[in-house]
Design a binder for these strands. Structure first.
Lengths: 104, 104
DNA sequence: CGTTTATATGTTAGTGTATGAATATATAAA
DNA sequence: TTTATATATTCATACACTAACATATAAACG
């Protein structure tokens, strides 16, 4: 009745950090909206700001955050920078969870 | 070159809230460790605290948090309360993400 | 009832995060 | 090279979150 505790193998710290970071990226409504938008196709920063009614600086902040986690990528075209999603797994997870939330 | 903005249908606020809440639950390392532990089988509060080396009050707080989101459930046996996971979808998502993090 | 054990809750200090205003940088066009 | 446009960054601030300690509640049992 006492030995049963011993079996569980803990997650290593590195994995724990990566996983929690990933979920943290998805825990903010603004980032969720941006990622959800980008799951379809690429958009420029100003397009994102206009569509989602956000300040440009806010969009830039969140895109940097997402870029650091390699959840989005970008390409430049003149002065315009187009962002798109860069992690199929995360996008799939997001869409599944949205579906799940809509059909509860 | 201007009309392409109009198509995107925004997530409604309720869904956005539910989804971000769910991910927020998973964004904290302590809650992740607890949920990961509970994905196998049920454990009492004191067992969780001992296995994960957490303060009892901390475990209780996190369990209440997870319970409010219906991610865990519990049953009482005398003074002991056993908690177990209560959302297959979230557990699956967690395990997939752990797997993904381990094999990158 | 009083005591012990298991769990829950209130409170608070420290830390982290999201946002916006102002400003800087970068590219293109004139 | 000046000007306009798009994006990034810096800085300040308000707010949220985590974890710990202290305390309360609830059940079991003598």
């Amino acid at each position: 009745m006492n030995e049963e505790k011993k079996q569980y193998e803990e997650l290593d710290e590195e994995t724990l950090f990566v996983v929690s970071q990933t979920f943290k990226a998805l825990s903010d409504p603004t980032r969720l909206r941006i990622l959800s938008l980008l799951s379809n196709r690429e958009y420029s920063v100003s397009q994102i700001a206009e569509i989602l009614q956000l300040k440009q600086s806010n969009v830039s902040h969140q895109l940097r955050y997402l870029k650091n986690l390699r959840l989005v990528k970008f390409r430049r075209e003149g002065t315009t920078i187009y962002y798109s999603q860069d992690d199929e797994h995360v996008i799939r997870m997001l869409q599944q969870t949205i579906y799940h939330a809509l059909h509860r």
